[in-house]
Amino acid sequence: MSTEKPVHDERPNRARLIVHPANALLLIPLIGTLIPMFYNRVHPTIGGMPFFYWYQLVWIPISVALTYLAYRLTRGVR
């Protein structure tokens, strides 16, 4: 392991991690779709499609909108 130099004094990198608050929008789709007991039912149906299915499909445009919003709000921000 030739490139492994023992560096005893190297501390873990403590640079402050700053997360833009708009990124919290990214958490919403996870809460909306990953807990199936909230949406596991047949009624109400739309066009013959049970709630279980259309509810999850509706989350697709919502997720696109939220992620796009996070992108726009953090433009140019690192």
Partner: peptide, 20 residues
């Protein structure tokens, strides 16, 4: 049946998860 539909939430959450 319904179990196979997990692919939909999978492909919904993957992008917000890996975004950052």
């Amino acid at each position: 049946g319904a179990l196979g539909f997990f692919a939909v939430p999978y492909t919904i959450v993957v992008y917000p998860l890996v975004f950052l």
